[in-house]
Every structure is written in structure tokens, then in C-alpha cells.
Design a binder for these strands. Structure first.
Lengths: 194, 194
DNA sequence: AATGATACAGACAGATCTGTCTCATGTCAA
DNA sequence: TTGACATGAGACAGATCTGTCTGTATCATT
């Protein structure tokens, strides 16, 4: 029965607030009050708000990476299945109530300065995630893995944004069909290639 | 030789700063200093910063609508050509140096509260733009115009975001090919339908 | 009981933000 | 020349932000 550490409690509260209302919009004081921690304790765990922001992005990334690894283990040795499962998974996940878009894309908008630590971190996270997908595309025998990955990424990020500001029940189905069309074009053994 | 009005000068300066650095990140004082206008004059033109923000979004929207109308006039009576031209156009536009993403998507992230005037405005702008595209898809005889429009929107918004944070020379080509694949599937007279 | 570590509570500094208000200056018409 | 008015310059109020610092309470160990 480990008591949750102050750092974890702060991070949990901050994650919720940052995601729901935006990072810039949420002040330190609110996080402190809501996590029931003293200001001094807060600054012992995180030297600056930027540090907390980076930790927030990292924790979000960990969840995403774990999910991907789980899917990979679920369909061992079958990259095509892994890709399809990934598409199904994000499609479902997008139905979550209180869905507020991609934490990394949002952070990129909030911190456009490419030298800002949060911006650096999120670029790194995005690069790393999509290079894993690229790996999948390669392993699956895509004709042009870079092209397929880039297109899936566009479609996915756009799905995320559309879903964020204009929820429609049909979106997930539209997304899935478009993604599978892209996959099909690149992964079929050897069909009518345009 | 009409002298530019104070309002126009403010709006021009604010547009540049808002787009390049984000709306929340740019203070009134900077806009005032850079547009060489007195604070009182500023507040005569725009009662609040929110008003200026909404005006900024409106002016961006006008440019976009004009562009679309121009394309429609360029290929009269041919919605398919208009759609293709739209895709080509955004593809080219995305190569602009200092490209910083879609002003409306960015604003949506900066003002997630759906009641915020800027959020209301940008939702309206987005809805209006994509209903025009839907019209095009209908006129062009798409099999499922809603589906095609939603998919094009996802692809486009994702292109915008990817382009924003990870510029790659190949993106425009990948986008164009994916968009045309979607178009093809929906607009060919009567081919192999999946 | 004494001590040291840790945490809460919150005052405080210093910066920055929006929006109001004052005042000096310039312009134009009568 | 004079009066009405618009404008630039900027002080100011009040709020809010991050981050520092002080003081007090709690708890484990000696």
C-alpha cells in the first residue's frame, strides 16, 4: 500500500489540468492547491514549470509507447496486423469522453519556439513514435514505407484535430476506411498498382 | 493614396505576431508599440483583446474564402477540377517560409473553452469552409460526399500539423497522392468499387 | 525530551498582463 | 487666433503569473 509520492500526485493533477485546459492556461498555484502540496514541496519536485511540462509530456509518451508495445506483442511477427490493430485502437480511443486532442500537437501550438524545452521534447517524442511506425511499415513490406508512414501520420493527426473541435459519430469510420485504403495500396502482395 | 487606418495597421501587426508567436503569447503592449499607435487609440478600435483576436481570425478567413472563390471561378462548372486545384493550391502554399500551421487550429488549441468568442468564431469558420468543400464534393458526384469531405479534411489538417512541426520536402507529394487516392475512389465514373 | 528532516501554509517580490485614465501635442475649421 | 477634437505617450490600477522565503506543525530517530 505505497502512498503516492508528492511528485506523482503533482504530476497526476497537472496532467489532468494541462490536458483539459492547456498548459499556459493553468497556473502553478492551481496545481499546488489541487494536489494538496506546499509550494516549497512543489518546487522540490520540479525546479520550474517548464520541467513539470516536460515531465507531463514524457508521462503521456510513456502511455503511448506502452500501448504500441502491447499491440506489437499481441500480433507477434505480423507487422500488417500490428498496423491494423494500431488503427483500430486509435479509432476506439478517440471516442473517449473529454477527448481534447493530442497532447503533443497541442503543446507544439502552445510553445512554438523550437528552442523551448517542451517543444524540443515533443518533437523528440513525435519523431520517435513515427519512426516506430515506419519500422512497422518496412517490416510489413510496404512499397514506399516513408510515404505510407507520412500519409498515415497526416490522416491520424488530422483525425485528432477534427475530433477535437468537431465531434461527429461518423469520423472514426471515415478515418478507418481512409487509413485502410492507404494501407491496402501499399501492402497488398502485388495488385493493380497505379 | 489612402492612408492606412489605425485599425488596419493594428490588425496587420497583430496578425503577423499572433500567427508567428501565438495569440496568448503576444501582449497588447507589443502590438501597440509595433503598430505605432496609442493605447487609447487601440482600445477605440478594439474594445478588448478578444475582439482583436476575433478580427484576426475573420481576416484570415476572408483570405481563405477569397482564394477558394478564385479557384471556383478558374474552373467554372467543373467541381472535380476545383477540388484538384484546391489540393494543388494548399500543397504549394504549404511551402511558404515561416509557415506556422493553420491559424484556426492553433486558435482552437489556445482557446479550448468552447464558449470563448475566439473558439466560437473559429468553429464557425471551419464549419463554413468545409461545408463549401462538401458542396464541391456533392456537385462533383462523389459517392459519399460527407465521407470524402471528412477524409480530405483529416488529411489536410494533419498535413498542416505535420508541416508545422516537422518540415520534410517530400510531404507535399505524399499529401497530394493520398488526397488524389481518396478523390479517385469517390469520383471515378464507375470503376472497381471496394 | 531533543533533534533533524520534511511538509503545509502563505506572505512576498518582481514581472507581466489587460484595460483605464491623464495630459501634452498636433491638426483642422471657423 | 482660437476652440474642438483626435492622437501619441505613458502612468496607473488591479489581476495574475512564477518562483523565493519565512514560519509552524508533524513525525521518526536518538
Amino acid at each position: 500500500m505505497n502512498k503516492e509520492s508528492a511528485r506523482d500526485r503533482i504530476l497526476r493533477v497537472a496532467s489532468e489540468l494541462f490536458y483539459m485546459e492547456g498548459i499556459r492556461a493553468v497556473g502553478i498555484d492551481r496545481i499546488i492547491k489541487q494536489s494538496g502540496v506546499a509550494k516549497a514541496s512543489f518546487y522540490r519536485s520540479f525546479a520550474t514549470k517548464d520541467d513539470l511540462t516536460v515531465a507531463y509530456l514524457e508521462s503521456r509518451d510513456e502511455l503511448k509507447v506502452e500501448k504500441l508495445e502491447k499491440l506489437r506483442r499481441l500480433y507477434p511477427g505480423s507487422p500488417k496486423e500490428q498496423l491494423s490493430a494500431l488503427i483500430r485502437d486509435v479509432t476506439e480511443q478517440m471516442g473517449t469522453p473529454n477527448y481534447r486532442g493530442c497532447p503533443f500537437l497541442n503543446a507544439a501550438v502552445e510553445f512554438p519556439d523550437p528552442d523551448h524545452p517542451a517543444h524540443v521534447k515533443l518533437l523528440d517524442i513525435q519523431r520517435s513514435f513515427w519512426s516506430r511506425v515506419l519500422e512497422l511499415a518496412r517490416e510489413g513490406g510496404a512499397r514506399q514505407p516513408e510515404e505510407l508512414t507520412a500519409q498515415l501520420r497526416m490522416l491520424y493527426d488530422g483525425f485528432v484535430m477534427k475530433r477535437y473541435l468537431d465531434k461527429s459519430d461518423l469520423d472514426p469510420e471515415y478515418f478507418r476506411k481512409a487509413a485502410e485504403l492507404l494501407l491496402e495500396k501499399q501492402l497488398v502482395p502485388d495488385n493493380h498498382q497505379g
